[in-house]
Amino acid sequence: MHILIVGAGRVGLRTARITHNEGHEVTVVENDYDKAERAQNEGFAVVEGDGSDEDTLERAGVDEVDALGALTGDLNTNFVACMVGKHHGCRTVMRIDEDYRENIYRKYAEEVDEIVYPERLGAIGAKNALLGGNVTAIADLAENLQIVQFAVTEDAPMHGYTLSELELPSRARLLAFGKKDGALGLPLPDDTLEVGDRIAVLAEFDALDDVRQILVGEATAATEVA
């Protein structure tokens, strides 16, 4: 896809990098000379200018791109960039600065397809790092639906069994499996659950405790809420 990123700050530039690394074409709009130069030095196509200005976005190819990420720290710029993007037929993603605003923009901003609140994702990462342990929340898909990664322990009831023998609660699905120190991949029926292996599960909030007891084994650990 061809992606237009508005704002080459700490959120925009990182998004540009990982989007580019996955093989997508990325154009960046940035109004600060130093930030624009830094993005340019990293090899991005950069258009210097105001991201809330339609002419600037047109110069950056808003007519041709598939999606626009409005990722500056300025809400007005982000919202106007999404309005322009939507008008030109893009899928639009807007960065917000406070979590209570998520509902407001979801409800009222028809120009905005998706909302990102980077601090929330940062807080999930920080919390996981602080707590350590065998349970890691990866993502909240909906209020009641999470992707959580579990690390198999010595005490886990399923320790030593294969994935084909694993029975999760009905409101949970096995998504991925990785050997200790290996990368996560698609789960195969013959994979054996050994200490340190990691399993990513999509589960409704109420089912998480049961999943944890099967895979980790502790009875009392708190469930993870992002």
């Binding site: 209570y100 605003r101 998520e102 509902n103 407001i104 409800k107 009222y108």
Partner: peptide, 8 residues
Amino acid sequence: KANTGEAD
């Protein structure tokens, strides 16, 4: 400036 998502 609000502190709630209940804008309605």
